[in-house]
Design a protein around this nucleic acid. Structure first.
Lengths: 352, 352
DNA sequence: CTTGTTTGCACAATCGATGGTGCACAGACT
DNA sequence: AGTCTGTGCACCATCGATTGTGCAAACAAG
């Protein structure tokens, strides 16, 4: 606050103050000064001035000139859900450790919105784009490709660039098997008592369903089509599906495979109208992890996708020169009922 | 894709194609062309070319020239928590409806990090900054003030600019009263059976505690100091506090006021080591809403802060010319156990 | 003392869009 | 014909940083 005026200092201000040229100031402050053979003493002087005048580079100017911005984008379906928000949290930590600035935006699972959002980000000259859970990854690819923007898919695969996704087939198998085995031997689950609700016709849902059906055939010797209810991701659609089932059968299936925590919220909405006691022997498997869901009054087996692993892998792959459009599978983890796992938050200190 | 080259079209490209000057192209495409008395037919031609060549303005160039970027920042403590992620979701919707681009960043409740993050955002010439849940709002204010950046506090108040916050005192009262009244008349809660866990020495915690204590004195006629356990926000610190209590008393208090859903996760971690049956008559009030927490096996009364209301108010206030640094209180809502509320997600369509 | 090399830096173009200023031309009016 | 008022647009400086190029001074070699 010494005598800082209203506006920010620029290299021109420092150039006047130091008696050097703007280009020298620039070189000193962006680290290329050795290459330009600037004297150590000159550099020191300029660094000093920059310090006392609280100089920070104008990134728009830098970005304009260098056509790089220091921004790395993450395109999400939505923010307010544990899976995607921990994606955001993890992503942010990685980006900032690289000295860049994260910019996280959601696009509501709408292909048109996804493309427009990508274009907006591009107009800010972002340096890389992580496309997470996009409904139409290849559509976003198009717009990235035409401007030569590096990008990668996460969670849902595209066909044009590498994708880092959860091993949904294996996860679907694990979860299905865990649900089945959770029933006691004297009251085993029948094939027509295990339903899958939620998800839609995307890669993740298809793979989970494939795993679900395969395990049902292996362990329960049957796999009726009617047990698959892809209701979409909206909680209320899931709620309606549960209500319809309940109307028809007077109860829920004993075994439920719920395709995501968002769909699980649909189950909650349904349950709000019924006492817990109606669901005494219910076992739920949910393809997502939420600590509170894990402690519900009925057994809830969950899948925690390895967000840290996916983000780490994605950064590795995107650094490669010309990566092949292959799919990298990251194994998820089965979480037994009543388990409180730690998350990215635990890495933060808490000042008291 | 017609014949789009590698690089993006600029006003200069369109200027050549249309036979007009770059400034004319610029005026047409940014809407100031009427003011510049450009002929309608010229404008139409240019708009047409822009369309077919997929022109989008380079925002870094525009921002550099106009010292505005179209970016509006939101500074959060963390992403991966229902309260803050719904803050992000709501914020994003508002910003985009204004035709600007949201940039959401977290700063881990660390004053130093908060200031640095604000400075980074400033270096991108963001147009406004919403400071949410900052540990040191006035510190961030300093850095905004020196560059003349409009800003506002949300969730935790500062003293230099307006703040839009939850009515924590009233919320604390409502929640405390609801916990007490949840016990049957024949087994009423005693003053030394109602504890508050979590939070630290910030404005929100203080106000909630004030409400908690006031209601205890009013309804339970006493308010022992020992019943206040501000453990900070880290889940593991809360867990340790619960474990210490349990070690000492062989049980948990019958009534628990948990200061945030993050602290509630600490309670879950504690509970993971004990069967539910140990907490048969437990009643928990949590100052935050999470749909899954609402359905836990014991009664969980929650407070849902009015995120939509806060964001709306914040946008109103920040638009004012020279707003006074007053505090705007937004009433939160009491949520009874087993309630599944809708959220910002429900506004999204779900294509099937 | 001359030529060659290295050191240390200044100059100026450039990125793409914006907006103040000015100017040519057309029509109206005296 | 001469002046005036509009119309429609072009010109050019500017925002702040980056970067290729050039050049003087210092020094070394012959």
């Amino acid at each position: 606050m010494t005598k800082s005026s209203k506006k920010k200092a620029t290299i021109y201000d420092l150039s006047v103050l130091s008696g050097s040229s703007p280009s020298t100031v620039s070189a000193v402050l962006n680290g290329t000064w050795q290459k330009r053979r600037i004297k150590e003493s000159t550099a020191a002087l300029i660094r000093d001035l920059a310090e006392t005048h609280q100089y920070t580079a104008n990134r728009q100017a830098r970005g304009l000139r260098s056509s790089r911005s220091g921004l790395i984008g993450l395109l999400l379906p939505v923010h307010d859900n544990r899976y995607f928000s921990s994606m955001a949290q993890t992503f942010e930590a990685h980006v900032r450790s690289k000295g860049q600035c994260p910019i996280v935006v959601s696009a509501s699972r709408d292909p048109e919105e996804e493309r427009k959002t990508a274009e907006t980000l591009i107009s800010y000259s972002i340096d890389e784009l992580f496309i997470c859970g996009a409904t139409d990854p290849d559509g976003v690819h198009e717009v990235c490709e035409t401007v030569g923007l590096k990008h990668i898919n996460i969670d849902l695969p595209g066909t044009k660039v590498p994708s880092v996704i959860s091993d949904n087939y294996e996860g679907g198998r694990m979860l299905t098997e865990a649900i089945i085995r959770h029933f006691p031997a004297d009251q085993p689950l029948r094939a027509d008592e295990l339903y899958l609700f939620g998800g839609r016709d995307d890669h993740a849902s298809r793979e989970r369903i494939r795993g679900f059906r395969a395990v049902k055939r292996e362990l329960l010797e049957d796999d009726p089509d009617g047990c698959i209810q892809p209701t979409g991701y909206a909680p209320n659609n899931a709620r309606l599906a549960f209500e319809a089932f309940y109307e028809k059968h007077g109860k829920l299936p004993r075994g439920l495979f719920v395709n995501s925590s968002i769909n699980f919220e649909g189950l909650l909405r349904f349950m709000a109208g019924h006492p817990h006691e109606n669901f005494a022997d219910l076992v739920v498997g949910c393809y997502d992890y939420d600590p509170f869901a894990s402690f519900l009054p009925f057994p809830v087996i969950m899948i925690r996708q390895d967000v840290e692993g996916m983000i780490t892998k994605a950064f590795e792959v995107i650094e490669e020169g010309r990566p092949q459009p292959r799919i990298h599978l990251i194994s998820p983890e089965l979480v037994q009922p009543r388990t409180a796992l730690t998350g990215p938050l635990d890495a933060l200190r808490d000042i008291d």
